[in-house]
Computed example of a mutant assay.
Amino acid sequence: MPAQPVPVSEVPCREAIGAAASARLVERCIQVSPATRPPCNAANPCDLIQGEIDRSCKLWERDGDPPAACKP
């Protein structure tokens, strides 16, 4: 049986974009997430980490004064 490709959404972010880029994404996630156990870990898929950033920034924007990490 041939090897099955791993869907992109299941590839660890560190493998998908490299250690340095994933570390920056994780750091940004940690800065903005109000969750007690956010998915801000390079072992998680990048889309999961980015989703947490997007979700968190929407909360900050709704409540006012979002952190600098939410601004492009």
Rank of each mutant, 00 (worst) to 15 (best):
R14E: 09
E15K: 13
E15R: 13
E15F: 13
A16C: 00
A16E: 11
A16Q: 15
A16F: 03
A16V: 01
I17M: 15
I17N: 01
G18K: 13
G18N: 13
G18V: 10
G18C: 12
A19E: 13
A19K: 07
A20S: 13
A20L: 11
A20D: 14
A20E: 15
A21E: 15
A21W: 02
S22N: 12
S22I: 10
S22G: 09
S22K: 05
A23D: 15
A23G: 14
A23T: 14
R24D: 10
R24E: 11
R24L: 06
R24N: 03
R24T: 03
L25I: 12
L25T: 12
L25Y: 07
V26W: 12
V26R: 10
V26P: 03
E27Y: 02
E27T: 08
E27I: 00
E27M: 06
E27N: 11
R28M: 10
R28W: 03
R28Q: 15
R28H: 07
C29M: 08
C29Y: 09
C29W: 09
C29A: 04
C29R: 06
C29D: 06
C29I: 09
I30P: 00
I30Q: 10
I30H: 01
I30M: 08
I30K: 13
Q31R: 14
Q31I: 00
Q31F: 01
Q31T: 04
V32F: 06
V32D: 04
V32G: 08
S33K: 03
S33T: 09
S33L: 01
S33A: 09
S33G: 05
P34S: 07
P34E: 08
P34M: 05
A35M: 07
A35W: 02
A35V: 00
T36K: 09
T36N: 04
T36D: 08
R37P: 00
R37H: 07
R37T: 05
R37W: 03
P38N: 06
P38Q: 09
P38D: 06
P39W: 02
P39V: 08
P39A: 14
C40T: 05
C40H: 03
C40V: 06
N41K: 10
N41P: 06
N41V: 11
N41Y: 10
N41E: 13
A42G: 08
A42H: 04
A42P: 04
A42I: 04
A42V: 07
A42E: 13
A42T: 05
A43F: 11
A43R: 15
A43M: 15
A43E: 15
A43W: 08
A43H: 13
N44A: 13
N44L: 12
N44K: 14
